[in-house]
Amino acid sequence: MKKWGFPLFLVFLTLFSTPTSSFANSQLFVGFNDISSHWASKYIDYLVKNHIISEADGSDTNFEPDRSITRAEFASLLVKSLGLGNTNTVTGLTYFQDVSSNNWYYGYVNEAASLGVLKGYDNRTFKPNDGITREQTAFAIMHALQYSNIAAGIGSNLQDEILSVLRDADQIINAKNEVASIINARIMTGTEDNTFEPQAYLTRAQASVVIVRFMTLLKS
């Protein structure tokens, strides 16, 4: 199992910064009409080129980077980034009562659930069209790393030190270690005012950045 981590001083140094991308100078793929001048255009373009995001077609030429990404959409990105497809139909087993076989995301959501990287709610719903929170994203990514045999989790002492920087750490409900670990791995960061905004919804642009950083870590 590969181990991944950074000295604490590097975590604090990069906690509120935006890491540069290895593809910062790459040529943009001709595609969506609304990303050419967007701050996340290179990340979105990378995912299009790697077939994680479908490229624009005649009927769908906008990416809507600043719209909240749905839980179903994020399940699709994460499963694809793991090299898996929309194939898990889980014969004879229904994970969620609000995800049916005629939904485009059925296989992706089932795959994510079977891997333990995305969970539903107590009433056996997945709420596929709801936004995914930053805390839920941290949980999903850290468990996807675990599935990929990358040990990016951290101990309680480092967790406490990292969370002590965040003014809204008390708003993290169930995934304190995952949030601290994903900051330590530099896949997600805090904001300039020392918050993580764990209950805020992730945008499609932000999700693209997270998935690219996750894929980069998988390949390292």
Score class of each variant (00 low, 15 high):
Val11Cys: 02
Thr14Ile: 11
Leu15Arg: 05
Phe16Asn: 10
Phe16Val: 09
Ser21Gln: 11
Ser22Ile: 13
Phe23Leu: 06
Val30Ser: 14
His38Gly: 01
Asp45Trp: 00
Asp45Arg: 02
Ser54Lys: 15
Ser54Ala: 14
Asp57Asn: 12
Ser59Gln: 14
Thr61Pro: 01
Phe63Asp: 00
Phe63Ser: 01
Asp66Glu: 13
Asp66Ala: 10
Arg67Ala: 14
Ser68Ala: 15
Ala75Trp: 11
Ser76Gly: 11
Leu78Cys: 01
Lys80Cys: 03
Thr89Cys: 03
Val90Cys: 13
Thr91Phe: 11
Ser100Asp: 07
Tyr105Asp: 06
Gly107Asn: 04
Gly107Tyr: 05
Ala112Pro: 04
Val117Met: 11
Gly120Asn: 11
Asn123Ile: 07
Arg124Gly: 01
Glu135Asp: 03
His143Tyr: 12
His143Met: 10
Ala144Ile: 06
Tyr147Trp: 15
Ala151Tyr: 13
Ser156Thr: 14
Leu163Glu: 04
Ser164Tyr: 08
Arg167Trp: 12
Ala169Pro: 02
Asn174Leu: 14
Asn177Thr: 04
Asn177Lys: 05
Ala180Tyr: 00
Arg186Tyr: 09
Thr191Asp: 09
Thr191His: 13
Asp193His: 09
Tyr201Arg: 10
Leu202Met: 11
Ala205Asp: 03
Ala207Thr: 05
Val212His: 04
Arg213Leu: 10
Arg213Gln: 08
Arg213Pro: 01
Met215Trp: 10
Lys219His: 14
